[in-house]
């Protein structure tokens, strides 16, 4: 697993929203195939990627997440036909706004993982964690927060 030398001790907090039909099942397949990825990733099951309200992602960063990834069915394969298209548009807007306010684009990601892609799920999580580790703790947003 690639680890940034300077950040070996850094354990990021990463939230992964996975749709029930494709990506959550892909994560299950990664698990049953014993394809490891760092324990920093915690998965939240949602029925569809379109269930993920931008509010949830803002909340995660507000509460100290260092990265948020949203995984859904491949475009065209959504269990609910069109949900992932909504998710894709919403996240495009949200991520550019987050970048503007200080959460760099590398900390947010949308990835399509099917139920059969255990390998892709594991690879995606490994690369995302490596990216977050290289970016370090999410402090730029912290600076904006009015603490105390």
């Amino acid at each position: 697993m690639p680890v940034n030398q300077n950040n070996e001790e850094f354990r990021p907090v990463i939230v992964a929203f996975c749709c029930n039909w494709c990506s959550y099942a892909g994560a299950d397949l990664a698990g049953s195939s014993r394809l490891s990825y760092p324990a920093d990733v915690k998965i939240i099951r949602v029925p569809c990627s379109c269930r993920v309200n931008p509010m949830f992602i803002l909340r995660a960063f507000e509460k100290g997440a260092d990265g948020v990834i949203l995984c859904g069915c491949h475009p065209g394969d959504c269990h609910y036909s069109t949900g992932n298209y909504y998710a894709r548009r919403r996240m495009t807007l949200l991520f550019s706004m987050l970048d503007f306010i200080g959460v760099e684009n590398g900390r947010t990601r949308v990835e399509w993982v099917s139920a059969a892609e255990g390998v892709k799920f594991s690879e995606t999580m490994n690369s995302f964690v490596a990216k977050i580790r290289s970016l370090g703790k999410n402090v730029r947003l912290g600076d904006l927060r009015c603490k105390n």
Binding site: V13, R51, M55, K63, A65
Partner: peptide, 19 residues
Amino acid sequence: DLQGFSNRQIIAEVDAICR
């Protein structure tokens, strides 16, 4: 809101993971 996956439920999960 969606029963079983409500805004409050998912935010509660987010909070528990990020705390």
